[in-house]
């Protein structure tokens, strides 16, 4: 464990808590893409199946359980409890365009052709693009609430910090995983345009609004 990874995990956790808290306190999931949340649920489920098969550390296991529980809770709030506030007219990204290629790529490019390994690989590929329905929704409505922007920023920072973690691990431990690194770069790049808007608008107290 190094500082980049720890900060990355904290940022990831913070993003999830910001989102859950926003939905719970406002009793509304307006502006949030349920499709992105479903994809993240699928990402955590397929990646953390190894909770049963391999033990890394108490920290690792606890975080996995927390991510799974928080993800399912978010999906429950969006699709059951506060279903009436879900803005599905604007959440129109076709997720099969992400899931099908992620499945295909996981079958083609993986470390080992075994069920748990393929599922892990699928989760890495899918995670890299899972935010697209949310970004699509923001671009469709042309704006995002500040709290939604904070959520997206924390989520983007998480993978950015993981990139620093991978550079550090390559240098300090001779450890690297090309699948995770390439997908992580793609994932971080997808947030770049948003980072720019966040820094130039939201941090200066303005609402995140896209030019018409």
């Amino acid at each position: 464990m190094n500082i980049f990874r720890l900060l990355g995990d904290i940022s990831h956790l913070l993003a999830i808590i910001i989102l859950l808290r926003k939905i719970w306190m406002s009793r509304s999931c307006a502006g949030i893409s349920g499709k992105s949340q479903l994809l993240f649920g699928l990402v955590y489920t397929t990646r953390y199946l190894d909770l049963i098969t391999s033990y890394i550390s108490l920290y690792n296991s606890v975080m996995k359980v927390v991510f799974l529980a928080a993800s399912y809770a978010t999906i429950y709030l969006m699709y059951v409890k506060f279903k009436a506030t879900y803005d599905h007219n604007h959440d129109t990204f076709r997720i099969e365009f992400l899931v099908v290629p992620a499945v295909a790529l996981a079958l083609l490019i993986n470390h080992d052709f075994q069920v748990v390994e393929i599922l892990w690989t699928f989760s890495i590929y899918l995670e890299s693009v899972a935010i697209l329905p949310q970004l699509f929704m923001v671009s469709k409505t042309g704006e995002a609430e500040s709290i939604t922007s904070h959520y997206l920023f924390a989520l983007g920072v998480y993978r950015g910090l993981y990139l620093l973690n991978w550079i550090y691990r390559f240098w300090a431990e001779d450890h690297y995983d090309l699948i995770a690194i390439v997908a992580g770069v793609v994932q971080t790049v997808l947030y770049c345009d948003f980072f720019y808007l966040y820094i130039t608008k939201v941090l200066r107290g303005k609402k995140l609004q896209l030019p018409a």
């Binding site: 890394i56 975080m63 080992d112 052709f113 690297y176």
Partner: peptide, 10 residues
Amino acid sequence: TTEAPEHDEL
């Protein structure tokens, strides 16, 4: 297929 590193990250 390459050698799989241990998946010790989240």
